[in-house]
């Protein structure tokens, strides 16, 4: 089915998107099989287990935290994916991007503690569609049993002066909710980002 285009608009014959379904309790088998206990599958190394290599550009950081349900209990069966620009604000594959940084990683929450942990780099700034610059941020996608459509949020860095002029943060109508998008700490380059699925501290999620 091919569409027709026009200088101002597209006229395309749209197909409906395939409906999302929960990743379920065993999402690890398909996405992080070594973590699930499938010894040796795919060479014994889970895809996206790390996203930076020796010689990468920029500041190495750790982003870690937990995902809490409506009772405040941590999810011990969730899976998170990260996608972000490199230290210079370029995405993997773009001209001039850091060849030692993939920009994408995938991590399960720990089966006991519920902690997830990404070893990444502090991202550079990326343009907003109207040309303004966004504050440094990381895209985060969360799936788990009980989550019917993967949830999308962003990690910003508390205290970064660029947050004040970030076009998306400015769109969060209830200012106090911006705090749910801020990773905290930063001592020894470890940033804490907890996600609350419900409750007074419910994280801001985005429909993009």
């Amino acid at each position: 089915m091919q569409g027709r285009s026009h200088p101002w608009a597209n006229a395309l014959g749209w197909l409906p998107e395939t409906a999302s379904q929960t990743g379920g309790p065993y999402v690890h088998i398909g996405c992080v099989p070594s973590f699930a206990g499938l010894e040796g599958m795919y060479g014994g190394r889970d895809l996206g287990a790390s996203c930076r290599r020796d010689g990468h550009v920029g500041e190495a950081i750790t982003v870690e935290g937990r995902v809490f349900d409506g009772t405040g209990a941590p999810l011990r069966d969730a899976l998170l994916e990260l996608w972000q620009a490199d230290a210079n604000g370029r995405f993997a594959g773009e001209d001039g991007s850091d060849p030692a940084f993939d920009g994408w990683s995938r991590q399960p929450t720990d089966g006991e503690t519920g902690l997830y942990r990404f070893e990444t780099v502090r991202p550079g700034r990326v343009v907003w569609p109207d040309g303004r610059m966004q504050a440094p941020h990381i895209g985060l996608w969360i799936v788990a049993r009980g989550i019917n459509v993967g949830l999308y949020t962003r990690v910003y860095f508390e205290g970064d002066p660029a947050n004040e002029e970030d076009p998306l943060l400015a769109r969060v109508e209830h200012g106090e909710r911006r705090a749910t998008l801020m990773a905290r700490g930063g001592e020894d380059d470890v940033w804490r980002f907890d996600i609350h699925l419900q409750g007074p501290k419910e994280t801001v999620f985005f429909d993009v």
Binding site: D69, T71, V126, A144, G146, L151, L168, T203, F205
Partner: peptide
């Protein structure tokens, strides 16, 4: 217990 209760915030995709 795993469903957000507040409306997601919509925006037109940035490069991220």
């Amino acid at each position: 217990l795993r469903s957000p209760r507040l409306a997601p915030i919509s925006f037109d995709a940035s490069p991220t």
